Amino acid sequence: APLHPVMPALVEVYVNSILVINNKGTNEYFNKPITEEEIRRVFRNSIFGVNFDSQKKPFCPMEIDSGESSVEFNLEKPTLASQLLLIYYLLLYEDVRLSNAATLLANGRNIKSYSAAFLSELPIKYLLHQAQKDQMSYGGLFSPLLRLLATHFPQLSLVDDWMDYQVFGDYCRHQVDVNLSETSINEAFQNIETNPYKTGKILKAMLNKNPTDIWPFAEIFVRYVKSVLSDQVPRHIQEQYREVWLRLNTVLPRCLWIMTINALLDINGTAKNVTITQENVLVDPLQVLRCDIRVFRCGPILKIILRILEASLAASRSQLSRHLLDKPLLEKSG
């Protein structure tokens, strides 16, 4: 369903009613921000629902706010418009909050902040691409969303990523008679050196699917990235693996990056239980390079690592700017 042109303006008014202090009167009335749990409920009913399962979050943990009251409601499958409006609300809320952080702090207001871990779970990039494809319906929201994304999430605004998406959007798909399942993917990668043809068929089948259709297999797909590094694996299989990875990168890129970094970690005797998190990468983007040495001898996988490194450096710079805005220095009077 197309988006009503008044809705973005209503979201702006709502956000300002939460954060912007009105100096015209003595009585101040503020709306309450939407809780993280309420937002999760919307996306839990979408195609990304598995990523919001509180029982299964191996790579991208989200902290559930304690003490927050949430509204009980029954929600059917959310529309694209409702998801885009929620993303717009979140990005605009953080933008206005950071812009007014000094004023809010000076007035002693304790304002809710949405955590970076929570924001990293949301399919911001994927939804923005959907809005881009249907600008007749969502044109009024696409431009402000793109501006906010480029400002606060430059790691999701890389030129190469957008060009990749355009290529995938025009990709000519052919039906491949292969049953994609966790079992078939497991078997294909376990025999990648002895039977690369079988692995190639699985990878080709994944390339001929929509990115959202193969996202449920992302975890098991990334788990076998080290097996692709072997000298016995044909180059075209490595290239196909990279192409599938790039398709997955259009769905939930930040989750994919962390999964890939952890799967490629150079595990030795002193660091067997090390797991890199989003926060680790934001603080030190060079953690990305703590990978198996064979990566640097495998061109296609090295390209993946360099793409993650480029995005991580952009995210780290953005996080520093966010931190400076979030913790402003106030002048002491007297």
Rank of each mutant, 00 (worst) to 15 (best):
L264W: 04
C60L: 05
R290E: 05
K57P: 04
L141K: 05
L127P: 02
I124V: 11
L302P: 00
N210A: 14
E72N: 09
R242F: 02
P328D: 12
L329D: 10
R254I: 04
A271V: 02
E94V: 01
S316P: 02
S312N: 08
Q135D: 09
T103W: 05
L252M: 11
T250N: 03
I308L: 04
F43L: 02
L80W: 01
E239M: 12
H152D: 06
W245M: 07
K56N: 07
V11H: 01
F52Q: 03
I293F: 02
L282A: 00
D213Q: 15
V15S: 05
I301H: 06
G334D: 12
K272M: 14
T79A: 11
F189T: 04
Y171V: 10
L122M: 14
I185P: 00
Q83F: 03
P2A: 13
E243C: 08
G140S: 07
Y165F: 12
V42I: 14
L289Y: 07
T212G: 08
I301P: 02
I34M: 10
Y93Q: 00
K57I: 08
L286Q: 15
S181I: 11
P78C: 15
P144Y: 00
N45G: 12
Y224G: 04
P211V: 04
E243K: 14
D161G: 13
N100K: 05
V6M: 08
I202D: 07
L203Y: 01
G169T: 03
T275A: 15
Q83L: 07
S137Y: 01
E193K: 06
Y14Q: 14
K198E: 07
L119M: 13
L229C: 05
R322Q: 06
Q238K: 14
I308D: 02
Y114N: 06
N27L: 15
S316M: 02
G169C: 03
I276P: 06
T103D: 14
D284P: 00
S54R: 09
Q175G: 06
S316Y: 00
E121G: 04
V228L: 04
V281W: 00
L84A: 12
S312Q: 09
D160K: 15
R317F: 03
A311W: 01
Q166S: 11
K303V: 06
Q319M: 09
Q132G: 10
D170H: 09
V274E: 08
I261D: 01
I47P: 04
P61Q: 10
I202F: 04
P2Q: 09
I293M: 11
P5Y: 05
L306N: 14
P33N: 15
V159C: 12
I261L: 04
L330D: 06
E37G: 07
R317Y: 02
Y14G: 11
D326A: 13
